[in-house]
Write a protein that binds this DNA or RNA. Sequence first.
RNA 1: GGGUAGAUGGCGGAGUGGUCAAUCGCAGCAGACUGUAAAUCUGCCUCCUUCGGGAUACGGGGGUUCAAAUCCCUCUCUACCCA
Length: 358
Amino acid sequence: GAARAGLLTTAHGTVETPIFMPVGTQATVKGLTPEMVRGVGAQIILGNTYHLTLRPGDELIRDLGGLHAFMNWPHPILTDSGGFQVFSLAQKRKITDHGAIFKSHLDGRELELTPEKAVEIQQNLGSDIAMVLDECPPADAPSGVMRNAIRRSIHWAERCKAHHSHPTQAQFAIVQGGLNIDLRAECAEALIPMDFPGYALGGFSVGEAPEAMHAALPACAALLPSNKPRYLMGVGRPQDLLIAVAAGIDMFDCVMPTRSGRNALAFTDTGPVKIRNAKHKRDPAPVMSDCDCQCCRNYSRAYLHHLFNAEEMLGPTLLSLHNLAYYLRLMREARSAIVEGRYGEYQLRCEAGWASVE
RNA sequence: GGGUAGAUGGCGGAGUGGUCAAUCGCAGCAGACUGUAAAUCUGCCUCCUUCGGGAUACGGGGGUUCAAAUCCCUCUCUACCCA
């Protein structure tokens, strides 16, 4: 199969792929200390250009020793460029060939994010991997918008590459094109000659049906250089990850384990568990019996149910911890399975578990 | 014993003649969440429903009115004040 196991070396350490990267947008993986994040096996986490330049400011972080020191995460960090905010904050920005002009969601002040500015901010943050600024269009974007986004993302990648000067920071390019394989190919073919050290697929999980993404992934992943890391941005659920690994993807990030954790949804081998549901009120069992995370070793579903019911902050913390432990273990086991030549079997077994009813 | 103010859906609490099955909050039940404007959001929450509606309802009983949670009489109960 296309599934691959690899090593990704950065200035702050080596990452075993395939890997899931917890999202720490605002210089924190919400609800968890870096020690807890490390404790569940995280090797690399995300930070965000748009959010950190608005608050507390990328120059402040630079002056305090960079993002690693600032947040006490001495391991690899990847920063997103703000390209996703082009999508998620679409109502608060205008986009031109020059860059994206945001009205800050915090106070309404204007922030112009050009490719050059996105590079400078990420260099100030000092992340190990920086992403080029891209335009992430929604799944239902008309073809004119999609083509324009591709054209713009290619030019912006060029400008990001030209402006980049950080000696130990790698810069990854992003392929757009939605579900259209021809557009994806066109975008990839323009970016690959620029010789970035890594390539990402952006513009997935932006409103399309999951099955449509699954169907497009093998061909899209195959467009990316096989000798460089491949990163599927913003994806996804456990089943999405395994399908993408099978397609040859190496890196993932997603808010799902942490956001869902805060919202009382736990991922398990038998599918997602809504811990707020009344059926857990008196359940002495752990969230997941075969999980060795701190949450599952020590606390019952009944206790978690109570914590969420009482709006205690420990609930979100414990479930975020469990969910990250679950995602990280899923990727570790996937890696072992790949190395041992039994990935297909591993994927099938996981999918069978998720499909079962608890 | 006298006086005053009250009694509304699980709770709190609006409404004071028709647009009221009744604002809103809480509690309860369920659903959603994918490069984080999210410890958030949505729906349901009297009973029945083919989801279009239908049937009973604002302490009990009686009355006025085309029409009452809203006005009148009466009973019961509650809180506070005076004896």
